[in-house]
Amino acid sequence: GPIITTQVTIPKDLAGSIIGKGGQRIKQIRHESGASIKIDEPLEGSEDRIITITGTQDQIQNAQYLLQNSVKQY
């Protein structure tokens, strides 16, 4: 399918649970989903961080599912 980009906003407090120790968790999510995932640095004074996910519809759905699971375990 076509490559698309979607953005998800997360509270910055949850960023740690998604990134994992030394970036292990986010690497695993990238690997498992096949999507490209970029977590922006939090904006000055903002409570949120923006996650940019790029890939096919399937890859993005996979990545979103894995991201949600990471947050739930936290």
Rank of each mutant, 00 (worst) to 15 (best):
E32P: 01
I60S: 03
Q64H: 02
I19Q: 05
G45M: 11
P2K: 10
Q28C: 12
E47S: 05
Q57R: 09
I39A: 08
I19C: 04
K38W: 04
N69Q: 08
A35E: 00
G23I: 06
K27N: 12
D40R: 04
A15M: 14
Q64A: 02
Y65K: 13
D13S: 10
D40C: 11
G1A: 03
E41P: 12
T6L: 01
E47C: 04
Q24F: 11
K72A: 14
K12D: 08
K12I: 13
R49P: 12
Q24R: 14
S70T: 09
I39K: 02
G20P: 10
S17C: 03
Q7E: 14
I3A: 14
I18G: 04
I37Y: 01
I4M: 03
I4V: 05
Q61K: 08
A35G: 03
P2R: 10
P42T: 09
S46F: 06
E44N: 15
E32N: 11
H31D: 15
I37W: 01
A35C: 10
D13Y: 08
S36R: 11
Q24M: 10
Q7K: 12
K27A: 09
Q57N: 12
Q28L: 05
Q64S: 07
K38F: 06
P11Q: 06
S17G: 09
E47N: 11
Q59P: 00
I26T: 13
D48W: 03
T5D: 06
K12Q: 11
I50P: 06
S36L: 14
D13C: 10
I10S: 03
T5I: 02
P42D: 06
E32D: 08
K72G: 15
G23C: 13
P11A: 06
V8K: 13
I51P: 01
A63N: 00
R49W: 05
Q68M: 03
I60L: 09
E32K: 05
I53R: 00
T56K: 07
Q57A: 09
I53Y: 04
D58C: 09
T54Q: 04
D58N: 09
Q64N: 11
G1R: 01
Q57D: 08
I4G: 01
S70N: 13
L66W: 11
Q61T: 14
G1V: 04
G1K: 08
V8W: 03
S17L: 09
Q61D: 15
R49D: 06
Q7G: 05
E47V: 08
I37E: 00
Q24E: 09
K27D: 15
V71A: 11
Q68D: 13
I29Q: 02
I10D: 00
S70M: 14
N69T: 06
D58W: 04
L14G: 12
P2L: 11
I29T: 05
V71N: 13
N62S: 09
L43K: 13
T6V: 01
T54C: 06
E47W: 04
H31L: 04
Q24I: 15
H31P: 01
T52H: 13
I18K: 03
D58K: 05
V8G: 02
S36E: 11
I53Q: 00
E32M: 15
D48I: 03
Q7T: 12
S46R: 04
Q24T: 10
K27S: 08
I50T: 11
T56R: 12
G20V: 07
R25P: 14
K12S: 11
T5A: 03
S33E: 01
R30L: 12
E41F: 06
E32G: 12
Q64E: 15
I50F: 11
A35V: 05
A35H: 00
H31M: 14
K12L: 04
V8R: 04
Q59V: 10
I39E: 10
Q24Y: 10
L66E: 09
L43F: 03
I53P: 00
I18T: 05
A35W: 00
I50K: 07
T52P: 00
L66M: 13
I10K: 01
Q61C: 09
R30F: 04
Q24H: 15
K27C: 13
Q7P: 02
